[in-house]
Design a protein around this nucleic acid. Sequence first.
DNA 1: AATGAATGAGTATTCATTCAT
DNA 2: CATGAATGAATACTCATTCAT
Lengths: 203, 203, 203, 203
Amino acid sequence: MTLSPPRPRKQPRQRRAIETCAAIIEAAARILEGGGPEELNTNRIAERAGVSIGTLYQYFPDKQAILVALIRREREALLQEMRAIPQESGDALRAMVDASIRHQFARPDLARSLELIEVSFPLDAEAAAMAHEIAAISSGLLARRFGRIDQTDLLTAVVMGRALVNAAGQGMIPFEALAERVVLAIAGYLEKVAGRSAAGAGN
Amino acid sequence: MTLSPPRPRKQPRQRRAIETCAAIIEAAARILEGGGPEELNTNRIAERAGVSIGTLYQYFPDKQAILVALIRREREALLQEMRAIPQESGDALRAMVDASIRHQFARPDLARSLELIEVSFPLDAEAAAMAHEIAAISSGLLARRFGRIDQTDLLTAVVMGRALVNAAGQGMIPFEALAERVVLAIAGYLEKVAGRSAAGAGN
Amino acid sequence: MTLSPPRPRKQPRQRRAIETCAAIIEAAARILEGGGPEELNTNRIAERAGVSIGTLYQYFPDKQAILVALIRREREALLQEMRAIPQESGDALRAMVDASIRHQFARPDLARSLELIEVSFPLDAEAAAMAHEIAAISSGLLARRFGRIDQTDLLTAVVMGRALVNAAGQGMIPFEALAERVVLAIAGYLEKVAGRSAAGAGN
Amino acid sequence: MTLSPPRPRKQPRQRRAIETCAAIIEAAARILEGGGPEELNTNRIAERAGVSIGTLYQYFPDKQAILVALIRREREALLQEMRAIPQESGDALRAMVDASIRHQFARPDLARSLELIEVSFPLDAEAAAMAHEIAAISSGLLARRFGRIDQTDLLTAVVMGRALVNAAGQGMIPFEALAERVVLAIAGYLEKVAGRSAAGAGN
DNA sequence: AATGAATGAGTATTCATTCAT
DNA sequence: CATGAATGAATACTCATTCAT
């Protein structure tokens, strides 16, 4: 895992190659699900994907690249769901929270592992752009209910929400009524700060 | 880092031995501060502590044990501060949050690294007991202001608070007015759920 | 790079095939020029030649064969020049040295790399024959000026000459007045040994 | 074989460690003698030295470092001999040539392999200093017989001499009367250029 | 013939841990 | 008690070569 950018590998052209590529990413996902980041090594990934180690390196310049591709795959899935939420929805906040929870609990162990990895990880430009879009969508959805929100307050709300969903995914807090609790937490905070700035404006 | 239970090593009795032990733990802390978990290896710890690798293994059965000891040391420090908060304090919640923030920002890089390590870590009984005591103290402090709180709601509040402080430590949200925001978030949530259960009880 | 004898591949008959073959050899030359022997691998050669790796192996049984072909191509070029020197030339030695220098400095980095490779290389029969012809031509050219020369002395002179040209190519000695220096060195040596054998014959 | 400087390894303190270190270097020498540079890999070196691969890396940061140490060892041996030649010696040139030949033919295959390696090798400061000292000594020894010599002519003579000794070591020219031939070659050249500059000065 | 996907033995290097001194 | 030499399984990654399409 060096920091120097490795030269890019060839793009798969034939159908078989594309499948191989996907198999490698999915193999990494499965290993993360069943054992955590320290079990994840390139030889194991290749074996689990049913390809040779050489094949793996045809498509991914290094181990990190596989993880980046996996993170992108997962984020893309969440993004799809969030893009699909109608802005005029009666309860957009709830829809957003539901999407997050669905995503997290679809493959909770995977989500947990990736969470861990992402924080200690220099994401590439595309991954950063995705994170940005998620934030933008959240902002838009929340604005409808809570009015114009300070950037910091929005971030705070998102951090809170993510933390609660993750905590539930890790079994720290129960899954029961999770969505409601997350919505309450976010709403509680945003109403409070709305009140604060209103009061501040009133002075 | 094997998972097999390491046999316990001798407890240091003499003053010099205790110092050696502390030096090893602090060396680990310094390495984590200045480079993250992948820089942390036993040879480096020994070197930085100024002892030989053999000596290190006199006091710690394996690498994990050093980390466990470090985590305990840090948690103990936080616990001290939280135990010192008077129950009758006018704003016990704020005092609690302040203690957490102080602790986090005393050595933010260390706190961050340990955060990462802790989640992927089978803590021993003592560490679990500490976590329990922190929860109990929090519960006590919060109960005074918010009445009897459901265990799950308490946990939820603690998770939220920790997440925000950590996020600030990692630079995801600004440090400015952090304590206020955390207090607002916790208060916002607990008031909401208090209202809900009151309403629920009323029905 | 195994030592087992590779089975010969088909000879290219069609014009396109000959071009492909030449492109592969030139690609190897370019890679050697711009990075040295450790950058040279079959996949890179194929890519640089604009053909697939499979095609490369249609024409060359293994990596070595490509290098052998390249060495042959280069030697052939030098040989052409040396064959063209008229035996009756006033200064055949100088003409020979000039040809060597021209050849070396036409593509100095390539010449240098090949020099390195050749010495650690089992040349095939044809390459050996070429080396022989170069020696024979040199011998003929030198004989005219220095009389019948002992084989060993001839070889010695050739080795000296090559070493000086190579050293200049690698920047170890300056390029300035190189031809003169080489001629002086060879002449100096051959005159000395001529004197010695004359004296020896006189005894 | 990266170019980035790897961090230095610990110096051997105990006698056993020093022996291990020497054994590793000698193992590398033996492998080079019996098979050339491509047979040389760290696992093989360790095995041949009778130590584990881990031990090897305790003392050498990477493969290159072993080669550098070996080159230094060999050069030091030659340097010893050349330093021992008395300046007032009747035939210092011959003594110098003899030393070179003795050195080369003590372990000819090793000398040959190292020759090959050295040219494609970024030598460290110490190795460069040694090369410099050899040149200085040669210069001094030659000056006594040939008067003040132009730097370039000196270098030219040294290059010629080395090339002939190497060529003999590789079997390209016979060993018989090698020293005489080398002396003749060097003397022949230096006398010629001395004459040239004298003639030039005379005009 | 040409393509490029796939192979896997091989290579450098790390690091937790043991044990003789 | 302390030292540091030694271990070797494990890991990321390369590259010559084969073969199905």
